[in-house]
Design a protein around this nucleic acid. Sequence first.
DNA 1: ATAGTGAACTGGTCAGACCACTTTTTGTGG
DNA 2: CCACAAAAAGTGGTCTGACCAGTTCACTAT
Lengths: 209, 209
Amino acid sequence: MEQKPAKKMFLQIVKQLRELIMEQRIQPGDKLPSERVLCERLNASRSSVREALRSLELLGLIESRHGGGTFLADVGGHQLVEILSSFILREEKSQKDVHATREMHEREAIRIICAEKELRNLPIWDSLFAQIELQQEVKRAAILRECVIAAGNRLSLKIWIQLHAYSMTSLKDRVTVSEKEALQILIKSMQMGYTEEAIEAYNEWIGQI
Amino acid sequence: MEQKPAKKMFLQIVKQLRELIMEQRIQPGDKLPSERVLCERLNASRSSVREALRSLELLGLIESRHGGGTFLADVGGHQLVEILSSFILREEKSQKDVHATREMHEREAIRIICAEKELRNLPIWDSLFAQIELQQEVKRAAILRECVIAAGNRLSLKIWIQLHAYSMTSLKDRVTVSEKEALQILIKSMQMGYTEEAIEAYNEWIGQI
DNA sequence: ATAGTGAACTGGTCAGACCACTTTTTGTGG
DNA sequence: CCACAAAAAGTGGTCTGACCAGTTCACTAT
């Protein structure tokens, strides 16, 4: 009859906190019930309540002021709560999000390359272009990796590697003939510093995959 | 003076935890010291240590198993973000990369919003615009967070939250008068769907910070 | 060598106690 | 009556200690 008590207390409290916020129409900036009151209402110890509150505070969803009280974060509480619940429930993000994020990093790398002369003039681009022209073994991942590496943001590179590892399943290795053109346009545009054209070529290329 | 922020204990512990992970080369999937051991080493009470650990657990960075121990989140499928964050945590040197990456996600969010009518027409933008106009308390983070949320990529949001959490130090809270204009242009451009203008306004705004 | 058992360890939860800070109330003096 | 300072109440921040409930692992007894 009762819900599963299996989950950890502080997660249940986070969930109940969200329900409480919605029920009582607590607006961003408003004060939340005090920790001690929440203990009573949620039938939990103060330690557990605090674990939940501190978690939400680290996420930036609430703000606690010593001696003052606990408040719902200033802006956009309702939207945040929705996001939050999805985190709690561990609803896993779609493959789409992973792809979109990876492509975001790739596009940004292309933009950076286009904007910097030293990067545009790297010999690697000619090399890649020639390999594509000759239909040699050119792996998509290699091309994109070169871009992200060239862009010089190591954090972005690390993120990209992880994202790529995760989304590799649906990617074929070799570059097909139909992709050849868009790919070469991409590289040439990059070398010329034509950001818009490069991005457009990239989008067209990605669209084929 | 020393940068002893005298901030909240559980935040200090979060910070110390990441230092500990870095020093001991703890890899994703590895076991962390037990809560009681951490109490001794970090010279804090178990309550505070647990508040920190539970926060990291809600973020998905660590995983606790009843009776088993606490582990640094492993590469299991979608949990990739956790690994990144552990990278982020240990790279003090590349603060610039963190900022650049965070800004990348913000720009992408702006682009997405500009491109989709439903997102442009969200009431939140008028609300933010009005608050800026009235010089109310508007936090930079709140504005950017709304953008990333609205863009709808939850993976990107999760990455952003973590990037923001660890680059917070250099960000002031309030929006200054000099930023007001660029910010309002950003919002208006977004609502109109003028991608280029919005990005330009964003860059100008960011440049001031 | 194996299966079984139990001690030792680990996280999960709770209760209560202080402290420091903020807000509210109260009581005084004008 | 009002203004203002002192006192009280309220609130988050931290710590201690305790007990429960799972997991691990070494050491039996077979």
